[in-house]
Design a protein around this nucleic acid. Structure first.
Lengths: 235, 235
DNA sequence: ATTTTTTGTTAGGTCTACCTAACTTTATTA
DNA sequence: TAATAAAGTTAGGTAGACCTAACAAAAAAT
């Protein structure tokens, strides 16, 4: 099969190419930065993966995954997210403790293990962060997670992640009671500039559109593991 | 911490030195054979482990573990056996399918994970093969597993493993209905030569002492995870 | 359109864990 | 006890995944 390093590159490419809002063009430097290695190292590996027909790229060009490479990368993502779900649901890990361990567990090689784990967890469709878990064939449901800035007035969301990790943002968020796992209701929104009134822990705060665009929330009624699109989603 | 390879050597040394009936003297060749590497490789690693004060040995002498090395090796054994238990009890793996996967899982580095897993499994004392699981401090209970040749007349045991893996042995065992997980009653034993009458699936078979010395059984009443010494053990 | 910056590549080096082949020490046996 | 066999060691070599430093190509800015 694939080495641990190869799997890490394939997973990174899936994340960068397919699981990103913005541009899906990826280069050597960006990939290297993402994986905390030097560009020269990433370049070596890209050549190796090209040899194996897992990525397709030309010198100085952009990188893309072959069908086979995408399948392999998706499989690593699947394993990572299943293990994260296991850690949170069965072993009572907190959301922010699981990543490092899942980074290791995702490399365990056993089809039977992954599929048994999937069944044991009752085939969840989303992991604890609200990210979709690819199925056996690498297919995913469109995540029901969305930005707070896109939640309708009067609706509520449960915070699953934040995009901005700067101290100023985090401190501000903390000050007004916005934290991972917490509930937020969108009490009002000014159409002129997007100024939004949030109701958090029974207090109202008026925040900027920019602030709201950094917060991911999920629907609080259709909880983890359900296919939101089929439910009476409160968004 | 320790590399995967280092952990494998430490685990192997614990197995060879502490978890064996016969002589606990171990040399380079034997260690290499056990780990499927060449003696030269084992020798390299022994030097490295000595540098790190994990093993203690002199050139051309026998190998032993330091307190620190034994603790580290025991920890790997603990993880291996906990994962085996998880696979069998929670994911419905068969006894003979777990080893390969557990070989990988035992290298996951996270104290919290191991201890949570231990709790999740309700702190089992023995793994599915009947081998003792070391606790957080590396202590183990005396295994209640014993050889069929040591089971008293009139008592029964559940087969957990066999020592002999030759075809002739396995075929013979199969023919008389002796298989992993199956029950055997010792109906009688000749004190002269140890010829033993076994009752298997309601049929009697007379077998040699040699045959019985190759079969490990556990007490069928005090099942996995219990401390046999405290119970009304049927042995 | 030329210079500068950014991005990507190559060449050569390190470290780990393995190997083979040749050699030395210890143990066994004639 | 000398010869032979077994066990252990050393030297030198390979492959994978990383590195630095120097260089080349493409993109951006002047």
């Amino acid at each position: 099969m694939f080495s641990q390093a190869e799997e890490n590159y394939l997973k990174a490419l899936v994340q960068l190419i397919h699981f990103r809002d913005q541009g899906n063009e990826v280069g050597t430097n960006e990939l290297a930065l993402y994986l905390n290695v030097k560009p020269a190292t990433a370049n070596d590996m890209l050549k190796k993966l090209r040899e194996k027909s897992l990525v397709s790229y030309v010198k100085y060009g952009k990188i893309s995954l072959t069908v086979e490479g995408q399948k392999a990368g998706m499989d690593v993502v699947r394993k990572h997210r299943l293990w994260e779900t296991f850690l949170v649901e069965k072993l009572d890990f907190a959301w922010d403790e699981v990543h490092e361990v899942a980074e290791q567990l995702e490399h365990i090689k056993s089809k039977k293990l992954v599929n048994s784990l999937d069944d044991f967890l009752q085939n969840p469709k989303f992991d604890p962060h609200g990210d979709a878990i690819p199925d056996r064939e690498g297919r995913i449901l469109i995540p029901y997670q969305r930005l707070l800035s896109e939640v309708s007035i009067g609706k509520s969301g449960k915070v699953v992640s934040v995009k901005d990790n700067s101290n100023s943002f985090l401190q501000y968020a903390d000050k007004i009671g916005v934290r991972i796992g917490g509930m937020i209701e969108v009490a009002g929104r000014e159409s002129y500039d997007g100024q939004t009134t949030l109701r958090v822990e029974n207090k109202d705060h008026t925040v900027s559109d920019k602030f709201c665009m950094n917060i991911h929330v999920v629907c609080p009624t259709c909880k983890l593991g359900k296919d939101c699109s089929k439910n009476d989603c409160s968004f």
